[in-house]
Amino acid sequence: MPAINLLVAGRLRDYADVLMQQGEGGFRAKAFRRAADVVATLDRPVDQILSQEGREGLIALPAVGTGIANAIAEMVGTGRWSQLDRLRGELAPEVLFRSIPGIGAKLAGRLAAEGQIESLEELEHAVRFGKLHVKGLGPRRMRMIAAAIVERFGGPTLPRRIIAARPSVSQLLQVDRIYRERTAAGQLRKIAPKRFNPAGDAWLPILHARHGDWHFTAMFSNSQLAHRLHKTSDWVVIYYHKDGEPEGRCTVVTVSSGPWLGQRIVRGRETAEDEEEISK
């Protein structure tokens, strides 16, 4: 068996184990274990599939959808997997970004701090769709970085014309409410993030939940900005995905001024279309 396949399969199983340890119901864990079994028994190295067929070649494998294909591509391209690092409290976006040509230490730090970007998948989307505004990152450099990520990942994470599905505002606010209630009741497992945690305390509660076709992971923000503004017990970051689709992320916050003062809102979803859901 190719060594890279055994490495990737091992990390997929590690992810399934961490999900179970943190209280996930088992559905996602089983999916990752099935994918691990497929990868472990392939006679072709996954990096060869990625280089010759792109991510579509990985997606075509049994039990491997878009989300797991993106994870495999990240492991092959960087040697790390941000989703697993996140659940272990080891997420360090700055280190991940420095694996991409054209991104040095200073820019990597600004991407994590100013851009609030956590993964290469998010970085690729941001530079492709013009949603990234960080000092020192002009159009030419963004094009170079986007091209480097696509080459490393074996193609774009999503075709340009496809918009990733996302849950409704009411679903996200429900996850936020459940997370904060269970945190207050001391019912959630806590992890000890390595970033901004010199004492190594296990302070960060984590929730895994499933509602219909959606899978959610929620935790308080451990970003540099959240610490600076003392919002680590207010801002709730929710990761979400449907089977076969890439992961999305949003942040739920308490409004500090204006007509929704004191209410919880999904940042970036305060449009007229979403107002009715937010105000419920």
Rank of each mutant, 00 (worst) to 15 (best):
R161K: 14
P167I: 00
S170C: 02
R110E: 09
L123R: 02
S170D: 07
L91F: 08
D43Q: 11
K106R: 15
N70L: 04
T66H: 15
D47T: 14
S168G: 15
S99M: 15
T78K: 02
V46R: 10
E118N: 15
I149G: 00
S51E: 12
S170F: 05
D43Y: 08
R166E: 13
M75Q: 09
A69G: 06
F129M: 10
P62F: 05
A92I: 14
E151R: 10
V76S: 02
A164G: 05
E74K: 03
L137K: 04
P139Q: 00
R141L: 12
R110K: 15
A148M: 04
E122G: 02
G154T: 03
V150Q: 10
H133Y: 13
P167R: 00
R88C: 08
V150Y: 11
R141F: 02
G57T: 01
M144T: 13
V46Y: 12
V134G: 00
G67H: 15
V127Y: 06
V127L: 02
G89C: 05
A108K: 11
E118A: 11
I149L: 10
V127H: 03
G130A: 06
A148Q: 07
D85N: 14
L123T: 00
A112C: 07
V76Q: 08
R80N: 05
V46H: 13
V95I: 14
G79Y: 10
V64C: 03
L137H: 09
G155E: 03
L84P: 05
V169I: 00
S51L: 12
V150P: 01
L50K: 07
L173K: 02
P167T: 00
L132K: 08
I59M: 14
I100P: 03
R161H: 15
L132R: 03
I103S: 06
P139A: 01
V46T: 05
E121P: 05
D85K: 07
T78F: 07
F153K: 08
T157S: 11
H125Q: 13
A108W: 11
T78V: 04
L137C: 01
D85I: 07
R161C: 12
I103W: 07
L123N: 04
G115M: 09
L50F: 06
Q116E: 12
M144C: 11
I145F: 04
P101A: 00
V46N: 01
I163K: 15
P62V: 00
L91G: 06
K135H: 13
R86P: 00
L132V: 01
N70I: 09
